[in-house]
Amino acid sequence: MGSNSLHVLKGINFSVEEGELVAIMGSSGSGKSTLLNILGMLDVLDEGSYTLDGVPIKNLNETKAAQYRNKFLGFVFQSFNLINYKSAMENVALPLYYQKVGRKERQEKALKYLEQVGLREWADHLPSELSGGQKQRVAIARAMAAEPKVLLADEPTGALDSTTSYEVMDLIQKINDAGNTILIVTHEPDIADMCKRIVHLKDGVIVEDKKITQVRASQYV
């Protein structure tokens, strides 16, 4: 990454238990995305160690990393990152395709997850034909399709209005209720309050890490 290196994260010591729903907060540039990307194996750490499900993640070759991303991790991005020439269903089916699941089973599962996010009727639509909230729900369905243990969401509600944000959070809470571990990067305090734990970052260090009582999003929907 260029010749002059920049220390974004400086000594972070933190662990997440199975089934947690963690919000990562902090001002812009504090290193939230960087942390999440390292946890998601999209970026690599220079120093220190990272253990995922008991496996030390260090110097993995790209093939191994791809397998972990596929089986353990699901991503939701602020900008949705759907593949725009594939229909909603095909987008959701992608992680299964990479697992070499058969075509028929793939479609069935994809429809099942679209159903869960309430977009079954939109299965054949291209992303360009969906609203922002719908896109994000497709992205969540896609992240869940491979049944990952951990869901990583970088500002999943960043591009959505508050009503739609709550819909998305409702979905995320339900997924968490089902036992998945979820980490969400967010700027919005009301979104953070819907998690079970809030981690505050500032200039690459954790300044606060507290458990909270979860606010259910369903009451706003």
């Binding site: 991503f75 990152n81 759907l82 593949i83 697992q99």
Partner: peptide, 13 residues
């Protein structure tokens, strides 16, 4: 970008 998305979803290189 598309390739990035696919890799994030775990497609084998």
């Amino acid at each position: 970008k598309e390739i990035g998305i696919r890799r994030a979803l775990g497609e084998d290189p």
